[in-house]
Design a protein around this nucleic acid. Sequence first.
RNA 1: GGAAGCGUGGCAGAGCGGCCUAAUGCACUCGCCUUGAAAGCGAGAGACCCGCAAGGGUCCGGGGGUUCAAAUCCCUCCGCUUCCGCCA
Length: 421
Amino acid sequence: MHDPRVLLDPATDAVRKLARRGFSLDVTALEKLLSSRNSAIQRGDDARGESKRVATSVKGAAPEERAQLVERARELKGVVAAAEEEHRTLEAELQDLLLGIPNLPLDELPDGASEDDAQLVRTWGEPPTFDFAPLDHVDLGERLGILDLPRATKLSGPRFAVLKGKGAALERAIARFLLELHTEHNGYTEFSVPTLVNRVSMTGTGQLPKFEHDLFKTGVGETELYLIPTAEVPLTNLHAKETLATEELPLAYTAHTPCFRSEAGSYGRDTRGLVRLHEFSKVELVRVVEAERSRAELEVLLGHAEAAMQALGLAYRVIKLPAGDIGFSAQITYDIEVWLPGQQKYREISSCSDFGTFQARRAGIRTKSKEGARGFAATLNGSGLPIGRTLVAILEQGQQADGSVQIPDVLVPYTGFDKLS
RNA sequence: GGAAGCGUGGCAGAGCGGCCUAAUGCACUCGCCUUGAAAGCGAGAGACCCGCAAGGGUCCGGGGGUUCAAAUCCCUCCGCUUCCGCCA
């Protein structure tokens, strides 16, 4: 969420920036709403102040004076109530408006709104070449007997997966490897968090109110809870409505959780295999930092995600998304795309974003320096990595002529085997 | 699910409907003292909102009500604790 005064400051250049991502900001409406809200607050404050003074003077007043004072106090009570009511209404309107305005893309982002407009940052590793026709992960997985999609559909429907035997073991191994990499080498603290969260938490990170249709929701009696689409939600909201001392920043948190996505609007895309599921698991990285440091911290975060790719020996490239293609809460996003021989394409495997203070304002994550300076924190997050897509890449990049799959060396201590056959 | 109790400042803990602008202690910050520290003494200090500022307003778990006036009375919701029941 934006600070309306900053948004309206011409120096912010908000209208142009938001237009780059296809959002048209109605400055006049916002200005009008803000100033009427402020004057309602002022009127209420003034009346309440007088009301208090009058109430205090009632006690020692002479009887005839007293009646007059009480009369005046009754009047003021009405004024206060009216001003408060007006404030409440306008405040709600203002919040609705502000909650629907996306973050401002940084100027360094390329123009455009499609994947094709992304800017290539670098590539790492050689896409493997094969002297045979490489299979995709579904064919590989089924031949190896580690993947059972028909039964997943029987259990839950399309876009679910069942892994079996060494497939399940490999999934577990990937998760353990990633967690240990990030906790032992990259300085992250591991958390185990709820995967069902309330509406406030979903609003704090920006999934709500705009993207309700992307979420799975549960309802039992009066209780409504949402299934998290990413551990970003619980990890970032851990510090909602808290003031953090700047000395304890940056915070670096990780968690391995299931993620649930409705995938509304992606009908027909990636219907095959493990690439796009309603439920998958992911090791997520979250950083909470001082506002001025957020851009630099994004490079740090990206480095941690890349370190995982490199340790696994997976060929990938990094792209900077164009202004029109970044998520609602982000001000800049890098995607890591892994080479998938089965598709002969680079496909997204990790998204690393800097949210600036956008989420912190919504969630109320404040900072206070030793000198007493107060502000909002900046938040960042990135996948480090999603287990399913990583498994896809390992299968496809590691496949051999005989249909077996070579397991990356770093995973062998966790799997206990170095080959799927 | 049933019963009872409790929610006050960073923590602990007072608080007859109006002098609560919330006592006191601990912790904290800054002085004095000291070679340095501790102790002692003195002073100070919260958060949020409106305002360029001066300043004003709000905050005793949340919301509502009674009253000229609520931390204090009433209702309701939430959370915590204890006992019972149930349960992995």
